[in-house]
Computed example of a mutant assay.
Amino acid sequence: MTQTFALIGAAGYIAPRHMKAIKETENNLIAALDPSDSVGIIDSYFPQARFFTEFERFDRHIDKLRRRGDCVDYVSICSPNYLHDAHCRFALRSGAHAICEKPLVLNPWNIDGLREIEKQTGRKIYSILQLRLHPAIIALKEKVAANPNEIYDVDLSYITSRGKWYHVSWKGADEKSGGIATNIGVHFYDMLGFIFGPLQQNQVHIRTGERAAGYLEFKQARVRWFLSVDQADLPHQVRGQQPTFRSITINGDEIEFSGGFTNLHTDSYTHILEGGGFGLEEAQTSIELVSTIRSLPITPHLGEHHPLTYSHT
């Protein structure tokens, strides 16, 4: 049976992946909201979808559908990070399930409130944690689980070049995005916990508007991590050739998972629609981790350092 969707944040970078996922799972987007009207991408997927630039009119439309018995089944949330909590609440109070981009919320205590609304409404909130569905990540998790006494040495490097616009937008405001570690790193932290088990230690070596770095210990891994939106941090071998560098090494061996990203949002939607999906419990661990990274004192000389930190400490 075809499911109906509404989408909040239609002009954002990630929204087309959600539109594509709704289309490829043979469902229907009937309404979309964004303060910006630069949403021509909708024509490629759902040209008949109603579009709103004001939340109040969008709210009225969704409520009118609900009152006449045509309640939207799901609300997909691609809005700025600090609005995810409110938009999840809106979805459930409108009688719909929520499918929310990461990070689900900025603060772990917000999850407690969402859990209460789930109980009150009987609706569910799903977080997009697509790396858990990547075949290479699943294979690695199985390998680690088969060797429960082994501790792995992991280096995580993620540099994704952003222009001056980034710091002017909501993404450059820590109170709205959660900072670098939350905005571009939360799905990697979720992946690490998914593979290597509970977190045991957390140290922060760098935390600025452009980059963050630190050290994590999980049950089965020691992790040195470095994240950046500054193209100057790109390795020399890729600088000028590609804007993004993503690397994870385990015991010195590179884990190749660059391929297979294209369809992970569609896979996530399929997983949810078939009765799976990752809910509040799965999202909570990484939200707690990034919240701690924001509040920890910076200790640049403590613990094991990622090699890329030495030019910044």
Results as ranks from 00 to 15, higher is better:
2 T>Y: 02
8 I>W: 00
9 G>N: 01
9 G>I: 01
18 H>V: 08
18 H>K: 03
19 M>G: 01
21 A>R: 03
25 T>G: 09
29 L>Q: 07
30 I>F: 05
31 A>M: 05
38 S>E: 14
42 I>E: 00
44 S>D: 13
45 Y>T: 01
45 Y>V: 03
51 F>D: 00
57 R>P: 00
59 D>F: 12
59 D>Y: 12
60 R>C: 06
61 H>A: 10
63 D>N: 13
73 D>K: 04
74 Y>M: 03
74 Y>T: 03
77 I>D: 01
77 I>F: 05
78 C>T: 11
79 S>Y: 06
80 P>T: 09
82 Y>T: 03
86 A>I: 06
91 A>E: 05
93 R>H: 15
93 R>D: 10
101 E>G: 11
104 L>P: 00
105 V>H: 02
106 L>D: 04
116 E>F: 08
121 T>C: 10
121 T>W: 07
126 Y>D: 03
131 L>T: 07
132 R>H: 13
136 A>V: 11
136 A>K: 12
137 I>K: 06
140 L>H: 08
140 L>S: 02
141 K>I: 08
155 D>Y: 10
156 L>W: 09
160 T>W: 07
164 K>T: 14
167 H>Q: 14
170 W>A: 12
173 A>V: 14
176 K>S: 07
181 A>P: 01
182 T>P: 01
183 N>T: 07
184 I>N: 00
184 I>R: 00
187 H>Y: 13
189 Y>E: 05
193 G>I: 02
194 F>H: 14
195 I>W: 04
195 I>T: 07
202 N>S: 13
203 Q>R: 15
207 R>F: 09
210 E>Q: 14
216 L>W: 04
230 D>L: 05
232 A>F: 08
237 Q>M: 11
240 G>A: 08
240 G>V: 08
241 Q>R: 15
241 Q>E: 13
242 Q>G: 04
249 T>H: 05
250 I>Y: 09
258 S>C: 05
258 S>H: 12
261 F>Q: 13
263 N>V: 05
265 H>S: 06
269 Y>V: 03
278 F>G: 03
279 G>R: 08
282 E>N: 09
283 A>G: 05
285 T>G: 13
285 T>L: 10
285 T>F: 11
287 I>F: 06
288 E>H: 10
290 V>P: 01
291 S>H: 15
293 I>G: 02
293 I>D: 01
296 L>D: 09
296 L>P: 03
297 P>T: 04
298 I>C: 07
300 P>T: 09
303 G>L: 07
307 P>F: 10
307 P>D: 09
308 L>R: 04
